[in-house]
Design a protein around this nucleic acid. Structure first.
Lengths: 252, 252
DNA sequence: CGGAACCTTCAATCTTTAGTTGAACCTTGG
DNA sequence: CCAAGGTTCAACTAAAGATTGAAGGTTCCG
């Protein structure tokens, strides 16, 4: 079990801590989370956090005894939820979807309508590399799940000295897969998506490959940009097609 | 959800100008306003319009006898209110303030990137049905492309009297496919995406199908919501996987 | 004028969303 | 062991956003 590593407690800070200096790297109990957030959100409460879980907006890991344990990403997610609710007036139902769609869009800085954080998707921006433990900590996934995801080729971390090293995309994938597991979608089901993605990538590679491997750097750069646009457009199309199919089998 | 629109019968055009033909300046009775807007907003009703007035969001003129009379700009304002409520999920309290602050921010076209129109994805909101000509008009696609998309099963319009009828999702699909064609992705290439989507839809159907067909309407509703979340989450995962693949074959 | 269609108000009711509360009981760590 | 903190579950609350029904008034047309 995942709990093995973290010696929760260890005498350090059982919610007791008003300690400012320390980094809250370890998993937190519900009371500790509440304490952390109550500076930022005055109407937070333990019962509200539990309520949000009931509404399928959170799903923290549990200790063997049933206590909730919030990972860093759980806390981030909760912060996002509270911000969307307070500042954007979104109903929980909508927040649930926004989050499901992967838009954590965290830093709440830019309110005005133009504020989408648009950064190049494909250029691997400063890929933090994470260990398995860090990955678990940040995503809240069970170790079991991660193992399965690797088994089915859904994440394929590099290996260094036999230890897997995960990047940010891996982390996002794990986070999303974890989300899906709450709906009963098991890791093995995700093979379907993996092979679709592979096929689609091959298609795009066939179209743009020559340019991408061109000796002309200008041309390469253009191809790279096209690829980014294509990736976005293709993803949109796939979404539409899926929605169409689902609407059929749900509606009629 | 019974109908409160109390029989808007033939007489609704009563408020039509008694004087000569073409004046756009006619004031409308509440029933006429309701009729005008019900194409665009399905959950409008006479009682709701009155309720909005009660909440200080509208104040139409009155006839000496007390009938409400809505000017063109009253109707515009009402349209804005309903749009903010439906698409931006703003509570009436906030809408009231926005309007008071002068921002009519009218034309509901897409607000720039940040404020994307969010609404339930799977519930087919008043699917406008388009003819082929309208589809071409609205998407800018060549007729050829549309023919191919149908040939490859990427769009599958209903047929009425032999003529195809497209809905909003079809329109979006065509628009996106047209976008892709600019990158050299032909309609026939899109079969790949279609079959991925089919496979994925089947997977989700297998997971949620029983609930979706449950006799218990409560359970059906929950399943429907889960399906929406799943669609969003799955789309996100697919995007991540595609990006990962592409990054591999483009960069490293 | 008469009456069909439409409109009015007002109080009561309903549904949904977003939580809170309390009772009974369990977990954790010093 | 035991106190501080955690767990579930059902019942309750409050506010927002409407809908309904009763009783009656207005408009317009013939």
């Amino acid at each position: 079990m995942a709990v093995s590593k973290q010696k929760l407690g260890e005498g350090a800070d059982r919610a007791r801590a008003p300690d400012s200096a320390s980094r809250p790297r370890k998993a937190l109990t519900i009371g500790a989370v509440c304490k952390i957030l109550e500076g930022e959100f005055e109407d937070i409460s333990i019962s509200k956090i539990r309520y949000l879980e009931d509404q399928k907006l959170l799903s923290p890991r549990r200790t063997p005894g049933g206590y909730r344990l919030y990972s860093q990403s759980d806390v981030e997610r909760l912060r996002t939820i509270l911000r969307l609710q307070r500042d954007e007036f979104l109903p929980l139902r909508v927040i649930r979807q926004e989050l499901a769609a992967g838009r954590e869009m965290d830093f709440g800085g830019d309110r005005p309508s133009g504020g989408a954080v648009r950064r190049a998707i494909l250029v691997n921006t400063s890929s933090a590399h994470l260990t398995t433990d860090e990955l678990i900590e940040e995503t809240g996934a069970r170790e079991e799940l991660i193992r399965e995801l690797e088994e089915f080729g859904v994440v394929e971390p590099e290996r260094r000295d036999g230890r897997p090293v995960y990047d940010e995309t891996d982390r996002e994938i794990v986070r999303t897969a974890n989300e899906l597991s709450r709906f009963g979608v098991a890791a093995r089901n995700l093979r379907v998506f993996r092979s679709s993605a592979d096929r689609e990538a091959n298609l795009l590679e066939a179209l743009l490959g020559p340019s991408l491997r061109s000796r002309n750097p200008q041309r390469r750069k253009e191809a790279q940009e096209s690829l980014e646009n294509l990736a976005a457009t293709v993803s949109h199309l796939k979404h539409l097609l899926l929605v169409r199919d689902l609407r059929r089998l749900s509606g009629e």
